[in-house]
Design a binder for these strands. Structure first.
Lengths: 166, 166
DNA sequence: TATTGTTATACTCTATAACTATA
DNA sequence: TATAGTTATAGAGTATAACAATA
C-alpha cells in the first residue's frame, strides 16, 4: 500500500491525488458553467443566489449573505441585478420595515425552469461524458459523502471567499 | 431512470448533480489548500508554479505562461517571489539571451520535499476522510477519466482564468 | 521587424467602513 | 443604542498595453 505521508504522483512525478483532481476539475467545471451562463448575462454568483431565493423564499438579505458567506454589501449588488431584470423582488416586511424579504417573481420561476435548468443539465452531461450512467451515480455517492463530511451545505456554493489562516 | 434533461435535485429541490458537487467540493478543497500553505507564505499559484518548474526544469517563462494559461506579465511576479525566496532561479540562455530558463534550486527541492509534500498529503487525507482506501482509489479512477476526457493537463492547475464566451 | 521578458497603466472585483432608516 | 440595508471608499488582484533588450 502507498505511503500515506507521500502524495500520489504519476510516473512523471506530477501530483494526481484526489484533492488536486477535485480542485482542478472543479475549477474547470465552474469555468465551463460560467461560460455557459454568460450568454444569459448571469454570473455564477447571481445564478446561485437566484436558486437560493427559489429554495428559500422570503429570507432577509442578512440571512442569505451569511449562508453564502459574503458581506451584505456585496449581496446588495447581486440582488440589484436580479431585481432589475425582474427575476426576483424585494418586499418590505410590514412588521419590521428594516427587512427586505426576497421572493422569486413569476418571470424568475419561468427563467429558472426554461433557461437555467436546461443549461445546467447540458453542463452536467458534458462534465460526465466520460462516465456511464452507473458510474455517474457512483461518483455522486462518493462526492455526496465527502461534501457531507466536510460540512458543505447541499446546494449552496459559497463564492470563492478567501479563508483566513487560523 | 432520471430524465436527462432535468438536473439532479434532492428532496428540497436543491441542485446536487456531479458538476455542482465537483465545483463545490473543488472550491472547498482549493480554499483549504490555500489556507494550509498560507503559513508558508505561498499562494496556490506560486505553489503550482514551483511544482511545474520542478517537473519541467529549464523551460522559458513564455512556455510556462502558456501552460498555465496566464499572461506573461503575471508570471513575472510569481517568478519574482519564488526567486527572491531562493526556491527557483532564472538562468539566461547563452544561445538566445532573450530567454530566461527557470530551474529549481537545491533549497527549492528541499522545500518541495520537506514542506510542501507533507502539507499536500495531510490535505489529501483530510479531503478524503469520509472514504475508505478502496473508495479513494475508486474516486481517483473516476476523476482521472473525467480529467482526461475534458482535456485537462495532468498536474497542471490553470489559475482560475475567466474563459471568454465563444 | 519579431520575440522575450519587464514595467506601467487601467480595470474589475471585493471588502471595510461610513451612512440612512427603522426599531 | 442596535440592526438591516445601502452607499462610498479603498485595496488587492489581474489583464492590457507600452517598453527595453535581443534576435
Amino acid at each position: 500500500m502507498m505511503n500515506v505521508n507521500e502524495p500520489e504522483r504519476d510516473t512523471a512525478g506530477r501530483y494526481t491525488g484526489n484533492a488536486f483532481l477535485l480542485a482542478q476539475i472543479g475549477a474547470h467545471a465552474a469555468a465551463g458553467f460560467a461560460s455557459r451562463i454568460a450568454g444569459l448575462d448571469l454570473t455564477p454568483a447571481q445564478a446561485g443566489l437566484l436558486r437560493l431565493v427559489a429554495w428559500q423564499p422570503g429570507q432577509s438579505q442578512q440571512v442569505l449573505a451569511r449562508q453564502i458567506r459574503t458581506p451584505p454589501s456585496r449581496l446588495v449588488l447581486l440582488v440589484d441585478h436580479l431585481e432589475e431584470r425582474g427575476l426576483i423582488e424585494r418586499r418590505r416586511n410590514p412588521d419590521d420595515r428594516r427587512h427586505h424579504a426576497l421572493y422569486l417573481t413569476a418571470a424568475g420561476g419561468q427563467f429558472l425552469k426554461s433557461r437555467l435548468g436546461p443549461i445546467g443539465a447540458a453542463h452536467e452531461d458534458d462534465i460526465c461524458a466520460a462516465l456511464t450512467p452507473a458510474e455517474r451515480e457512483q461518483l455522486r455517492g462518493l462526492l455526496s459523502r465527502i461534501a457531507a463530511q466536510q460540512g458543505l451545505i447541499p446546494g449552496v456554493h459559497p463564492g470563492y471567499q478567501q479563508l483566513k489562516a487560523p
